[in-house]
C-alpha cells in the first residue's frame, strides 16, 4: 500500500489531532536537528544532540502513525546501513589526515572565527557522528518496539 494511504488509516495510530500536529511539526524537527548539527562547532550541541533530534522525528512518526508507516519510511535494513556508513566515513576522514602528516589532521581551510566556515573538517565529523548516533538509536527503538515485544495470549 502507498505511504499516503497508510498514513490516512483511521484504525492505526493515535487520534486525528496528534496526527495533524505531527504532520505540521515533523519538517521543523528535521530542520532544527540539521541546524544543531551544522552549527555544532560555534554553539552548544553538535553531532550527538543533533542526531538524537533527527531520530526523534522518526520516533514521532512511529508513535503517531503506527509501525508500518515508519518502517516504510526508513526500514531496519536502511537504518543499520546508515549506521555503518556514518561510522566508516568517520574513520575515512581520520585516515585522510594521513596525507598531510598524521591521523585526524585538520587539513581543510580554517576560515575566520565565529562564522559557519571556520573549523575545517569538524562540521564533517559532526555530520557523520549524527548519522551514526541517529541511525543506531532508531534501530534500537524499532528493535525493542516492533520486533522485541512480548506476544500475548490473544494474539497467538
Amino acid at each position: 500500500m502507498d505511504l499516503k494511504e497508510l498514513s490516512r488509516d483511521e484504525s492505526r495510530g493515535m487520534t486525528l489531532i496528534v496526527k495533524t500536529i505531527s504532520r505540521l511539526i515533523m519538517s521543523f524537527v528535521i530542520l532544527f536537528g540539521c541546524f544543531i548539527i551544522i552549527y555544532g562547532h560555534i554553539t552548544p550541541g553538535g553531532g550527538f544532540a543533533g542526531g538524537i533530534i533527527l531520530t526523534i522525528a522518526y520516533v514521532l512518526l512511529l508513535l503517531a502513525f503506527g509501525g508500518k508507516v515508519a518502517m516504510a519510511k526508513l526500514s531496519n535494513f536502511w537504518a543499520s546501513m546508515w549506521d555503518n556508513i556514518g561510522a566508516l566515513s568517520f574513520v575515512v576522514i581520520g585516515f585522510l589526515g594521513m596525507t598531510g602528516g598524521y591521523f585526524f589532521l585538520n587539513f581543510l581551510d580554517h576560515g575566520s572565527p565565529g562564522h559557519l566556515v571556520s573549523a575545517g573538517m569538524i562540521p564533517l565529523c559532526n555530520i557523520f557522528i549524527a548519522l551514526k548516533v541517529g541511525a543506531a538509536l532508531y534501530a534500537i527503538f524499532i528493535g525493542l518496539s516492533v520486533y522485541g515485544r512480548i506476544v500475548t495470549e490473544e494474539e497467538k
Partner: peptide
C-alpha cells in the same frame, strides 16, 4: 520537543497499546 514526544509516548503507554500499532 522532547517533552512533547515523551508525553505522547506515555499517553500511548497508558492506553495499554504496543508502540507499533
Amino acid at each position: 520537543l522532547l517533552s512533547f514526544i515523551g508525553t505522547v509516548a506515555l499517553a500511548k503507554f497508558l492506553e495499554r497499546r504496543s508502540f507499533d500499532e
